[in-house]
Amino acid sequence: MASIIPDKRKRKKISWWSVVVWLAVWQVVAMAVGQNIILASPIEVARTLFALMKTGSFYASIWFSFVRIAAGFFLAVVVGIAFAAGSYRWSVFENLVEPLMRVIKSIPVASFIIMILVWISSRSLSIAISFLIVLPVVYSNVLEGFRQTDFRLLEMAKLFRVKPARAVRYIYVPQVMPYFKSACTVGLGLAWKSGIAAEVIGMPLGSMGEQLYQSKIFLDTPSLLAWTVAIVLVSYAFEKIVILLISIVQRKVVR
């Protein structure tokens, strides 16, 4: 969870042929193993996924986990930005917050999950866990973005008596945005990973994590992998939507 420096090179897109190659490798290995319990083939997983998609509980589970993980993520974004702004503005505030962030970064997710399960209901566990995992990522990256703001532009704004709200909108937002986007991309992946892990341990009824656990109990590997594929797809779609929303807001705010 170190600070992420935005890479100005364009992110390499995944080619369709490489996906086909890896699916083929998976299929060949599954056929060689010949046991669904050990490794289900992609065809079997797809079949199971389509079967799940015909049930209402599939969407209910997705909604259950999505709402909580997204809530934890957005809460972390809001608090992370506020803390980063506070730390940038007041060194006393940074001194206060920094140890907390370091502690949150170092504690294993499993310890958090078990600790928090003692305090709150398992139904809210994934909110708390995704919040705690995303918070330091957003905090450290946004703070780094603030620090990288061109001091010459800040001098210019001071000389021309630019109002603080305008300075934030036109100077800070464009400079911090690449750092914020990187934090969101990384944070979204972490939010889903940690949120689902929390659900597997806490087993809130009707969550995706609980479905994963049930698949494990019944040694239903095709179902386990089908749920995993569903999590990956939902997480990917959520990331794309969030990044799109950020870009739209950025375009509206800074023209």
Binding site: E155, M156, L159, F160, V162, Y170, P174
Partner: peptide, 26 residues
């Protein structure tokens, strides 16, 4: 005194249009 300046460097917000650079500061 209200000051205004052209610095030795241009000190423009590179991602903003020329129009926005002028309108938001002035």
């Amino acid at each position: 005194l209200k000051l205004s300046a052209v610095f030795q460097e241009d000190r423009l917000c590179e991602s903003l249009s020329a129009v926005t650079n002028v309108s938001f500061v002035a």
